[in-house]
Structures are given as structure tokens and as C-alpha cells.
Amino acid sequence: MIGEHTEEEASLYVLGLLPPEEKRRFEAAMEANAELAELVGHLETGAAALAWTAPPRVPPPALRERIKASIAAGVTQQRTVVVPFRGIKTWIPWAIAACIAIWAGGIAFNRYHLQLLTNALLIREHNQQVEIDGISTIRNGLQDRLNATLARAISEGKLNAELQTQLDTVRGQVADLQARNALSEVKLATLASIMKDNPQAVAVVAWDLTSQRGILKTVNMPAAQPDKDYQLWIIAPDYKEPVSAGVFDPTKGANFAPVRPISKADKFAISLEKKGGSSAPQGPIVLVGE
């Protein structure tokens, strides 16, 4: 049986009105008393009624992405211990993140930890953007060359040795860009066909981890049936399921952005989905590569 005094104490606890020492004592008592814990739940229901009086408001759209980025940053930060040393430009932001992690470690997952980490990563992102803007100009030039090469391959109806050479050249140039700017995470992937009736189909993906955007070009891809769409997927270690990068028209290629933040793109795949696409792959995979 719980008396009025305890009910009063529980009410003040629910509203955060108990002084620290009394709060600790109350929590210890609650741990040992299921009836008291139940009373607290009952009072929380009453307190939450006040929350329902607040008019709902739509948060800024960018906030959702900020929250997702914070979660992704948490994942990335946990992986810093296995990232190899890649030069001074690369290790500085990781060192910042590591310092923050060490500092925060003593505070047992303090609520400010993720906030500070996010701030540090936002500063890093700002600094990188300056360099990436320059890289983007060079990459656009490469993109033009890639388009021209693929257009020639389309006119020839097959992926010939010349195209392969061109792709290798582009791949090498992207690698050079990466070497010149270690913070720019550009990945080039060639996706091979696994369609028995169309083994000549091929796709090339240029994926920029920093901007979370990419470019897709396809060759020898048959048009999708009227009720179907081709859909690009990114297979990333962050998620159990492939992440959608959107549907596209194989005659045009596409600029794409995944629906969720990606910390590392392991593989790319294209599937044939119902019109408008799916939230997870349901149709046959037609091309895959890394």
C-alpha cells in the first residue's frame, strides 16, 4: 500500500522536481518496489497529458537529415579504430573525432557526446567542401568524357575494348583525384550483367561519399516493360537491407542520391522493380558490381 507522502514524492519525481539526493533515493526505492514503479508509470501517463496540449509543428526538413547524419556519424566514429593511416589530411578529422570520443568516454555516453561529435564533423564537412568544389570541376570534365565514351559504345552496340580502355583511364584519373584529395571519397564501379538474355548490358557508377551523390550510366540495357522500372541499390555495411538510390530510365542514365546516409558503398546492384520502385528489392537483380 502506497501512502500519500510517497505518491507526492512520486509526482515530484515524474516532473523532475525532486532535489538530486532525494531523486537518487527515490530511484533506488523504485528499483526494489514494483508497485512504486507502476505508480510512476501511472503518474507519467498523467504528466504526458500536458504534452498533448502542445500544438504539433512540422520540424524543418533538414533536421531529419541532421539527425540521420548524427546517427551515421556515431557509426563512423565507432569504426575509426580500424581506418588505416592515409596521410595527414585524412587523419586530422579522425583525430579530432577520436579526441572527442576519448573525452566523452569518461562521461559514460554523456548526452553531449553525440552533439559535440556532430559539431566537429560539421566543421570538417565545411572545410572539405572548399576542396571538393574544386574537385567537382575536374570530375565534371571526366563525366563529359565518360558520357562521350558511353555514347560511342551505344552506337556500336557493344562494350568493346576501346570503351574498356576509356573506363580504365577514367578509373585511373579518379584514383588520381583521390590521391590528390584524400578527403574526397569518389568510387567508380562497373556493374556487370547477370541477365542470361542480355549479357552485354553494363553500367558504370561514380559515387561520391562526401556529397552522398552519384552518377549512373548504362549501356545495352533493354527498356523496362511499361509497368516496370529499373532501380539502383547501394549495399552498405550500415544497413541490413540494400539502400535505394532511386529508379531510372536506362536510355538517359541518372544522377542519384540514396534515401539514407551511406558511410561505405560495398556494392551496387540494379533490379527490375514494379513501376515507381520498391522500398526493398523485390524484383530480379539484373546487374551487380563493386
Partner: peptide, 28 residues
């Protein structure tokens, strides 16, 4: 998010702080 953002806006009466509180809450 609309109901929770509405709540933190009402308490904090400051959009920037409300956004930070919302972010902190969803990370929790």
C-alpha cells in the same frame, strides 16, 4: 516528430534550441 517538436518548441520557445532538443531526443 510533429508532436514532439511542438512540445519542445512550447517549452523552449526558441527554434534553434528546439531543434537541438529534438535531435537529442531522437538520438536517445
Amino acid at each position: 516528430s510533429p508532436m514532439l517538436y511542438g512540445l519542445v518548441c512550447k517549452i523552449l520557445d526558441d527554434p534553434k534550441e528546439a531543434e537541438d532538443a529534438l535531435q537529442e531526443g531522437f538520438l536517445h
